[in-house]
Computed example of a mutant assay.
Amino acid sequence: MNDEQQYSDEVVETEEADEALETDETVPYEGGRRRKKRGVSGCLAVIVALAVLVGGFYVAVTRGVDWVSDQFSSAEDYPGPGRGSVTFEVEEGDTTAEMGRNLKAKNVVASVQAFLDAAAADPDSAGIQVGFYELKKEMKADDALEVLLDPGNQVKSTVTVPEGMRVEDVVTLLGEETDFGAAKWRKALTQDIGLPDYAGGNPEGYLFPATYEIGPKDKPKDVLTAMVARWRQAADDAGLEEAAAELGKTPAELMVIASLVEAEGRGDDMPKIARVIFNRLDGPGDKAGTNGLLQIDASVNYGLDQELGVALTTEQLQQDTPYNTYTRAGLPPTPIEAPGDDAIAAAADPEPGDWYYYVTVDLATGETKFAETYDEFLTYKDEYTEYCTTSDAC
C-alpha cells in the first residue's frame, strides 16, 4: 500500500468513527470494548440546574426587595372614619401585635403594621385595658387606637345591688337590669358560685351589695360568682372567721348577726347595735329583761315573706316562724338580707358596752340612743313618740 492510499484509508476510518459517535449505536475501539455515545442529556441537566439556581436567586432577590420596600414604605391604612359596628375584645395578656392581628382579622384596620405604627407613636399605648370595645370596620389605625385607650369606651353594663336586699330582691333586680330573665338567675343560684361551706348552699346574705360590671360574655353564674367573691373580700377584711372563734360564734352565726345589724342600723351605730345583739344572746340572767329575745321586726317580716320594713301587727308578731325573734330566743337560722362592709365589720368587732336596747329618736337623721335598762329605754321611746307628733316621717 502506497502512502497516499494509507492516508485515504485513515481518513475514511476517522470519518466513520465520528459518524458512529453521532448515532445511538455503540462503536468498537481498540481492545474489543464498546462505549456508548455522548448524547445531549448530560448537557440538558446542566442547563436545567443552572436555570433553577438562577430562578432561586431571582426569587430571593425579589423577596428581599419586597421586604426592604415594606420597611421603607407606608403601611396600608384605611382613611376612616369607618362603617358599621364591631365589638372587639382585648384579652388579658394581649400584646400590641396580637391586638393588631385581631383588629385586622375583624377588618377594623387595614394592616397590622398600621396599628403597630400608631401604637409606637403614642406613649400611652401600653395602657390599653382588658375589656370589650365598640369599634367600626375600616377605621384609620390612629382612630382605633384612640378608642381602645379610653376605658370609658368599654362595652359593659353596670348593676348596683344596694345593701339590705334579700336574694329574691336581688334576683328580681338582676332580671330587670340585664338581658337575662329572673328565671335564669334563679337557675344560676343552684350552681357552684363559690359559697362557703357554712352557708349550707343558701346564698342569702352572701350576694354582696356593690356595683358590678357585666361584660358581653358574662353569664348569670359569672356575676353571682363575682358577688360571692366580693363577699369573701369583705369577710377577709373584717377577719370574720377569726373573729367568730374569738367571740364564741360560728362564721355562719356572725353572718346572721351582720344581716340583722344591716337591717337595724347605719354608720357609726352599727358596732353598738351588734353589741346589743351579743348582749341579748350572751348576757347574764334575764339579760336586762329581754330573756334572750332579739325582737327585730325585719327578721319577723322575713319569716312572713314580706318586705322587711313593713310595720307589723300584733297578730303577725305572734305568728311563730323560725325567724320570729319575739317568740324565739336566739338567732334566726339564716341571714335575712345582704350585709355590706360596715355591717360585717361590726358583727366581727362589736363595740364594748352594756346596752340591751336602742331607739331611733329621729328618723330623718337616724339618731339612735342606746339604753342599758328597760326604764331608760322607755324614756327614749317617749322621745320618739314626741318626735312623731311633729314629724311626717313616722
Rank of each mutant, 00 (worst) to 15 (best):
A20D: 04
E22L: 15
T23P: 02
E25C: 03
T26H: 07
T26Q: 13
T26V: 15
Y29L: 08
E30Q: 10
R33H: 06
R33I: 12
K37S: 09
K37A: 11
R38Q: 10
R38N: 09
G39R: 01
G39T: 08
G39H: 02
G42V: 11
G42K: 10
C43K: 13
A45C: 05
A45V: 12
A45L: 12
V46C: 00
V46I: 13
I47A: 11
A49H: 02
L50R: 05
L50T: 13
V52T: 10
V52N: 01
V54P: 04
G55V: 13
G56H: 09
G56Q: 08
F57T: 13
Y58V: 15
Y58F: 15
V59W: 03
V59Q: 02
A60P: 00
A60Y: 08
V61L: 06
V61R: 06
V61I: 07
V61S: 07
V65M: 12
W67N: 14
V68F: 13
V68L: 14
V68P: 11
S69M: 09
D70Y: 12
D70G: 03
Q71W: 11
F72V: 14
S73E: 03
S73Y: 01
S73T: 14
S74K: 11
S74Y: 04
S74N: 06
S74I: 07
E76D: 10
Y78S: 00
G80K: 04
R83W: 01
T87Y: 03
F88I: 14
E89C: 05
V90D: 09
E91R: 15
E91A: 14
D94H: 12
D94S: 11
T96N: 06
T96P: 02
A97T: 13
A97C: 00
M99Y: 04
M99S: 02
G100Y: 11
R101V: 12
R101W: 09
N102H: 13
L103A: 04
L103G: 03
A105L: 11
K106A: 09
K106T: 01
V108S: 01
V108G: 02
A110C: 04
S111R: 08
